[in-house]
Amino acid sequence: MMSKAIYERFYRSLYRIRRVEEEIARIYPSDKIKSPVHLSIGQEAVSVGVCEALRPDDVVFGTYRSHAYYLAKGGDLKKMLAELYGKATGCAKGKGGSMHLIDAAHGVMGASAVVGTTIPNAVGYAYALRLQRKDSVVVSFFGDGATDEGVFYESLNFAALKQLPIIFICENNFYAIHTHLLSRHKDANLCGRVRAYGIPAEQIDNNDILKINERVKGVVDLLRAKQGGPFFFECLTYRWKEHVGPNDDFHLGYRSYEEARTWVEGDQVRRLAALIAPQSRERIETQVEEEIRAAIVCAEDEPFPEAQELLTDVTGD
């Protein structure tokens, strides 16, 4: 049984991510955010469950669907919103955008718009941690689509071979854009495939934040104690919004609202809200709303990057 304080932490993080993305969707039609946003609404539990099991010095690598894990890991909200607005104060000075959020100081090591490409980067980082005798761990987040790519399997193989301190988190939301996993794979037994590489694998099939957190925490402890190498979790979850952009897309016909219903009913934001005292909930929500409001004001007011930024950071000299 977890303590109320922990539920409150989880709720704060879940609620914050949900509300930030709802605000992004609200602002989007104004064209102030000229960035292809891939929202995680509905999938927040995976990011929060995993990142709440990590220390600040642990490191995550991810994908263009980056808002949830960036915030869950402690990425700076003001810098994130400024980045989406293309402002000079953004986390990448307006030079990355929504698909490339980074906050190295908080262990968010960046994201690629090319599916699968950060998986081996995470593996290399884990190799370095081992060599440097550190006890931090690496988490590699990716979607089910990345498990189509050869680089995923090559990365698994090397991580297993070297018994690296890395946790692979596949956020399986069943779709790569509009194409279902079963239109891309003969069978969906991902964990079985991963085990064949000598990596323990577990599926968590209901988006349950408490279970995700408990399981990942157990594995993190093992990795820190240098007991065992990589680990793989397949977290089933569901994207409520369209693949990219702020809208619903059930009208497209590639999936039905019926399919979504159980996931929406199992919403972890609502679930956690019910697990904490009403006064705590109100306090958390008020604080988060205030923080988001301030961050949006900031993002709107900040300047765009100056012309000389165009040619800085190309190389280091």
Binding site: G86, F304, P305, L310
Partner: peptide
């Protein structure tokens, strides 16, 4: 293209 990575922010993209 300017000899840089493509920046998404409109202020730099216009120059790119």
């Amino acid at each position: 293209y300017a000899p840089a990575t493509c920046p998404p922010t409109p202020s730099l993209e216009d120059l790119y």
